[in-house]
Design a protein around this nucleic acid. Structure first.
Length: 549
RNA sequence: GGCCCAUUGGUGAAGCGGUUAACACAUAGCCCUCUCAAGGCUACAUACAUGGGUUCAAAUCCCAUAUGGGUCACCA
């Protein structure tokens, strides 16, 4: 058969060749060892936590090696695409400060010299590569209908044979030119299938940076390369795009592991350099007794918006992702307290090959520690940003009292071991609302929460009259509370009380708590002295007065 | 069903032929303390899936089984 003629019949409008594209997208001029990696999601509208993890690792090794990380949108399947799907991904990235070196940057724009980065705009490129295969008798048109394929499968199932389009089941392999010509002239739909050179009885060793060397049978399936609408399948697009975009490392979920023989075969057929593959295990979730992959549909924590909404700092999420990605990261960080994520070298050898459960508690713990190290001003700006999207009322107050708010966040922060009150910005308001008159409600005060608080009015009155002075230093302030305790028959020290509880009506902690609850409506707050200093004389007196009537 | 991957305490995980089998999170208790958050100390946890080998010696090497997961589309 004249394969050139066949190729022209199938792709009459393709006039370029592979060399053209090789010249258009030349080898990248990068330092030795530079990693070119990418994230290639379908435009489903948002990024999955597991995807972010994979993309984060890819980007990390690219920047570590002074390489390139790019974003390519895999929109070859319309059924999967969602309206504004690209925008959703880009917004998630923006919210997570996830910057790309090149690729798609909005619904309409992109940057970089290796585009288009939208697969739907690369049809001609794919067809050029497809035409090459036909010209060289490496691929052929297949006219089998869906029914034909069902028939084949039934047959194979009945005979307990291996499923798929291969060997003697690949009937379209043997069509003559005139048969093909006739069908095409009749406008019969066809797909392009690989004429697989593989032998199922032979083995191929596939190296993988996280799973190690895996032995598979060679691929002998005549897989579909181009669908009947001329759009490539993932396998073919992967070959063409990652070759032309000069990708060196393919990071993807390990559900792709079993198609590795196909991909390696494809690269070999074209004699293109085979990229390094890194199949990343999934992030899982316990669902009753069974364990399954974190699911966009079932698990809110699968979506990045979940973390954004909670106000978990982006950097904390990355710290957590790195602790799950490289087992030595946590220890390294503990040893190198003055260094950060950027200074850590990612290593595939330290990556677990098996999936793990997503641990929100651990994330929150990391986040709590991270926040404790921020400055009051940083905290303020973060809370401001967060509340702008999720709590307008609080946002207004923060904007109204910026300096005052920063002072609040500074309570017990500038010390060697700062407080660790919150692990997410959404927790701030509940912790601090009483510092704002607009949010404080004295009617919610419940002295039932305080031990031995029966005579709280007397105690508060005594305090205002004889002990309260806003200008006292902390020692004096505390000494006076002790004196008050003695005056009303409470123990001025815990030890004394513990030794002889029956001798006292209560203890010093009870006194403090009566004051604390009066001023904050909470039994748990940061340093009461600091709080009173910030509240100031008038507001303190006002709050006390309201309680005592 | 075929092919492939995985399996260390509640969770993540170290371990690479000889260890009292690290560490972190979670949980509990004690200490500290004006409350809390921390911090310090301690505890907890029946932790090496099971069964066979190899070896003086196995969580570590080999084989089988079990369990979990993936994949076998004109989906990615």
């Amino acid at each position: 058969m004249d394969y050139q003629k066949l190729a022209n019949l199938m792709f009459p409008n393709i006039d370029k060749n592979i060399e053209y594209y090789e010249k258009k997208y030349p080898k990248r001029d990068l330092p030795d060892g530079a990693v070119v990696s990418r994230f290639a999601p379908s435009p489903t509208g948002f990024v999955h936590m597991g995807s972010l993890r994979t993309a984060f690792i890819a980007k990390k090794i690219s920047t570590d090696t002074k390489g390139v990380f790019y974003l390519r949108i895999d929109d070859t399947d319309e059924k999967r695409s969602v309206k504004n799907g690209i925008q959703g991904i880009i917004e998630d990235f923006k919210n997570f400060n996830f910057e790309i070196d090149e690729g798609r940057i909005s619904e309409t724009e992109e940057k970089g010299n290796y585009g288009p980065y939208l697969q739907s705009k690369r049809k001609e490129i794919y067809q050029t590569f497809a035409k090459y295969l036909v010209e060289n008798n490496l691929a052929y048109p297949c006219f089998a209908t869906e029914d034909d394929l069902v028939e084949i499968r039934k047959n194979q199932e009945a005979k307990k044979e291996r499923l798929g389009y291969y060997g003697r089941y690949a009937k379209s392999r043997n069509l003559s030119f005139s048969e093909i010509e006739k069908k095409i002239q009749n406008n019969e739909k066809f797909v392009l299938r690989l004429k697989s050179p593989g032998d199922f009885n032979k083995k191929i060793v596939c190296p993988d940076l996280v799973k190690g060397k895996i032995e598979f049978p060679e691929n002998d399936l005549d897989i579909v390369l181009l669908k009947s609408d001329g759009v490539p399948t993932y396998h073919f697009a992967h070959l063409v795009d990652d070759y032309l975009m000069r990708t060196t490392h393919i990071l993807r979920g390990d559900e792709w592991l079993s198609s590795l023989p196909i991909h390696i075969q494809l690269f070999q057929i074209f004699e293109f350099p085979i990229p390094k593959y890194c199949h990343v295990a999934p992030v899982n979730k316990k669902d009753g007794e069974s364990i399954r992959k974190l699911s966009k549909r079932k698990d809110p924590e699968a979506a990045l918006s979940f973390y954004h909404e909670k106000g978990i700092p982006v950097h904390a999420v990355y710290l957590y992702l790195m602790t799950t990605a490289n087992s030595n990261f946590e220890g390294w960080l503990a040893q190198n307290k003055n260094l950060g994520l950027e200074d850590f070298k990612f290593d595939f050898k330290k990556m677990s090959a098996s999936g793990s459960l997503f641990d929100l508690d651990k994330l929150l713990n990391i986040s709590k520690n991270y926040i404790s190290k921020l400055s009051a001003s940083e905290v303020y700006h973060n809370v401001l940003n967060w509340s702008d999207a999720y709590d307008k009322e609080f946002n207004e107050l923060l904007k109204k009292y910026p300096d005052y708010s920063i002072k609040i966040f500074n309570i017990e922060r500038k010390q060697k071991k700062p407080r660790k009150d919150f692990s997410a910005w959404s927790e701030v308001k509940d912790n601090m609302f009483y510092m704002y008159d607009e949010l404080f409600n004295y009617k919610k005060i419940d002295f039932g929460l305080v031990n031995k608080a029966e005579k709280y009015k007397d105690i508060i009155n005594l305090y205002i009259q004889n002990y309260f002075n806003i200008n006292d230093d902390k020692d004096t302030w505390f000494r006076k509370i002790k004196e008050l305790a003695i005056e009303v028959g409470y123990a001025q020290e815990m030890n004394l009380y513990k030794e002889n509880p029956e001798k006292y009506l209560g203890n010093i902690a009870d006194i403090s708590n009566i004051l604390r609850v009066s001023l904050t409506s909470k039994t748990t707050t940061p340093d009461l002295y600091e709080i009173m200093k910030l509240l100031g004389k008038e507001r303190i007196q006002e709050r006390f007065t309201k309680i005592c009537g």
